[in-house]
Design a binder for these strands. Structure first.
Length: 287
DNA sequence: GCCAGCCTGTTG
DNA sequence: CAACAGGCTGGC
């Protein structure tokens, strides 16, 4: 489920609650969602930072003297993963695969549950710097809102894949990290580019407009605390609001906000793809 | 490159 | 009942 804006919202929602808490115990109900490299000191460590990279969330742990980084808990939510914070005891909900028992300075116990209906999500227990042990992480491209996602870089990535579609370009985490199906369709609409266009058919102006559109929709998604059209919630169970701003995603049959044409849904790169046939025409000469 | 497969739940 | 779902991997 969560794309970059949703993971960033989860990070922001959990940070103030988790920082400084000590890990007392780790309860694993479903071992196959956990990947551990070596003997990682999770228990008795203190949460020191929450970071995000692409669609991955990292929880850093320091030792009890609070002097050094000793481990990282890394999470990928895939389609239906959730991290949920509880400030009092509750029976683990259905599909809770793992629970961290945490405590504050007063010794009050808190819980952090990893829940995932479809069990596509993963949680790693890593030594410091161990994120790149996951091949998906190690291949991540630039952050869409970072300064190293330059025009030159994006144009070069486009040039490398002239025959592939722009839909698969934006969904490729090696090209730019964190874009998923929602923000991909929304960015293509904003740039006025048909999702099935070949990368090689894009003019330089179209490519730069698409890059700007990706930055816009990702920033807007973060600004609205993510998109909850079905079951996405942040670390406290709060829904996002960007579903109210969607122009094409999940809008099949509804009138385009720009031209009034009915939004269409097709399949591109194996994914449900929403677009406006008027605002995002197929370029017959170049497609 | 593509797309089946991984899972369970929901929807038409 | 079949089709589909916000993601990614691995096998052609």
């Amino acid at each position: 489920m969560p794309e970059l804006p949703e993971v960033e919202t989860i990070r922001k929602s959990l940070s103030p609650l988790l920082l400084g808490l000590r890990v007392e115990k780790l309860e694993v109900f479903c071992p196959d969602v956990v990947i551990q490299y070596g003997d990682v000191p999770i228990v008795n460590s203190i949460i020191s930072a929450l970071r995000r990279r692409g669609k991955y969330l990292m929880i850093d742990l320091m030792d009890e003297s609070r002097s050094g980084h000793v481990a990282t808990i890394m999470v990928h939510f895939r389609m239906t993963g959730k991290l949920l914070y509880k400030d009092h005891y509750e029976e683990p909900a259905k599909h809770t695969h793992l629970r961290f028992h945490l405590s504050d300075m007063q010794g009050t116990v808190k819980y952090l549950d990893f829940n995932d209906v479809r069990r596509f999500g993963k949680l790693w227990l890593l030594p410091p710097g161990g994120e790149s042990m996951d091949p998906g992480f190690s291949r991540l491209g630039p952050e869409p809102l970072g300064k190293d996602w330059t025009a030159e870089d994006f144009l070069a990535q486009i040039k490398r894949r002239p025959q592939s579609t722009v839909k698969s370009l934006l969904l490729n985490q090696e090209v730019v990290a964190g874009v998923g199906n929602i923000y991909c369709d929304e960015a293509l609409f904003r740039a006025g580019i048909h999702p099935a266009r070949r990368n090689g058919s894009l003019s330089k102006e179209e490519a730069l407009s698409l890059q700007a559109a990706v930055r816009e929709v990702i920033a807007a998604g973060i600004g609205h605390q993510g998109t909850s059209f079905s079951d996405y919630v942040d670390g406290l169970g709060n829904r996002g609001h960007f579903q109210l701003q969607l122009k094409v995603f999940q809008q099949e049959g509804k009138p385009c906000s720009v031209c009034g044409s009915a939004i269409e849904k097709i399949r591109v790169a194996g994914r449900g793809t929403h677009y406006c046939p008027q605002c995002q025409p197929v370029d017959i000469d170049k497609a």
